[in-house]
Amino acid sequence: MTIWWLLVLIGSMLAAAGGFFWIAFKLSASGGAVKPSEPQTIDEQAAQNAERIFNDEFREELRNRGRLHFEKIIGENAMFLQQDLRLTTSQLNDFMKTEITQKLQDEFSKYEESIMDAKQLAVESIQKTNEAVDQQRQMMSVQLTKEFEDAKAHMLGRFEDNIAEVVNHYILAAVGNQIDLTDQLEYIIGELEANKEAIREDITNGA
């Protein structure tokens, strides 16, 4: 086995050496046809070959291909961007709808709660006002009743007093000129007798 492997190895080395020499020959043969003005260094040759390979047509071709590729990429990206934008817009719309709805619901809930509180306060205030009004009305009713009773009693009292005055005045006016003084003589003498001591004392000791 080792011999075989050795033979193969030697054969490979020989083949490689032969290829090397063939290439060297070829290169030396082609070098004889090069013009004396052409570059002789590898760098110069590389630059010359590059100029020859990357000529204007090839560059134009590369430019066109690059432009197409760029346009393709731009188009794809635009499409992707449009899709993303649409998706984002849709999501944003959904988000906004959800958020706004939520916010509106929250605000409406708070507003409704505030309205309910205000309504409750208003109802309580109205109830208190009604109670106060009822109480005041009852007090006024009692007071008015008392005032009416007092006024009625006062007027009745005044009427009774006045009617007594009226009757007295009427009787005095009616009988004033009808009673003869001669008929009153006994009464007058009686009254004088009753007040005799007081009259005598006043006349005796008076001013």
Binding site: L172, G176, L192, A198, D202, G206
Partner: peptide, 20 residues
């Protein structure tokens, strides 16, 4: 005339009303 009957009398310092 307003006394109707009886008399009213004024002494130096007293007044006697014995009228109706």
């Amino acid at each position: 005339p307003s006394i109707a009957a009886g008399f009213v009398m004024r002494t130096p310092s007293k007044f006697f009303d014995c009228s109706m």
